[in-house]
Design a protein around this nucleic acid. Sequence first.
DNA 1: TACGATATTAAACAAACGTTTGATTATTAT
DNA 2: ATAATAATCAAACGTTTGTTTAATATCGTA
Lengths: 210, 210
Amino acid sequence: MGKQRQIPSRQRILASAKRLFARQGFASTGVRELADDAGVNLAMVNYFFGSKKELLKEILADFFSGYLEILRQELQGDGSIDEKIRRLIHRAIAYIEENQDSMLVTLAELPHDDPDITEYKAEWAKQAMLLINKEICEPLGQQTGQDISPAAVGPLLISMMCSRFLFSPIIEKVRPPFYQQQYLSKYPEIIEKMFLHGIHGLQDLTDAEE
Amino acid sequence: MGKQRQIPSRQRILASAKRLFARQGFASTGVRELADDAGVNLAMVNYFFGSKKELLKEILADFFSGYLEILRQELQGDGSIDEKIRRLIHRAIAYIEENQDSMLVTLAELPHDDPDITEYKAEWAKQAMLLINKEICEPLGQQTGQDISPAAVGPLLISMMCSRFLFSPIIEKVRPPFYQQQYLSKYPEIIEKMFLHGIHGLQDLTDAEE
DNA sequence: TACGATATTAAACAAACGTTTGATTATTAT
DNA sequence: ATAATAATCAAACGTTTGTTTAATATCGTA
């Protein structure tokens, strides 16, 4: 039928889960609906993943580890702080765009205090903040004398990078008059400038590249 | 028993709903659990609100309209753009902090495409973007020559202001070493400086007030 | 007191939920 | 070809879901 025989069932379930969880929420998506969408039998979900919640955990863990890996690679590299931040933002946004659904699932589950999942999130946040503290907050503090908490900068950074994707389902419905195709391609640049120099730093992005 | 007789049932349901929806998610919170938490009979939820979803709608609509009202009052006031933005950010963050649970419910429901609720969100987003375009983007464009889309600025602004509250349930679990009481009181200032001048504009907030 | 309206209650409803089972088919290695 | 392993399937499990109903209680007002 519609189900592509090439792709193994496990991957199809995972792909459907990301899309459905992102659009309807984890709790609002039934296992039957998920199995139908993936074109597999109902029992296959628990066969491959053990339970519905374990499936969610895998989606979260995947997104977490991917983001953390980018954080490591780009922040521990060479160059000035600004250059590091620039690289990080551009790569992270590309990653978020590629894994948009996973990100939406992760973000929607962030405030929930399910004990099974809380540990994942806490461990991830801890490591991310350690990195940001060492590579951004401390160096920046030595330059300017201020001390800013990674507990403020970390959430701020990721919130800024995700903002477009969090609101895009809505914005697309308001298309005329405000949906401008142009700004999408400049999005990473906007976030980079905003994070470094705020809304007054956006001046020099209209024409010049970099 | 534990239920305070002074407060009418309808309000108690609403209060419990905000807290439970924020901590467990809307779909994961059963009507029975909600009724028990509020100390009312199961049937009272549908008696007052019609349905579980209508209850959610009321929470969303309340938060939406409150935010929009602040946007109107502060952006259409007197002063330079920077002053307007400053006022807006400080008042909006206070509002978000007061209605933290409502905000978390709203934010978690943002990406979901339930047709019943989508219209609410779209209408709200449209009006917010109209305001931001007229009072921020257009004036700023005349000053600096650039044109930035309200479809970028609107989501960015609210994402930045909410970042702390979105991650606070997690951050509190990572307390040592990064949870610093100090930064909480400076949070509105941090967001204000970040939005206007980026991370390099944070220098002058350590000692001086304003 | 008696009335109409509002509020509260216990009980029941069908539908959907996540999960498990045991049999059957495919696939792989011997 | 045969045995072992993995994958798929229909069916059923017991709960829990949101909602409704009809009876009762509470209250302000005439």
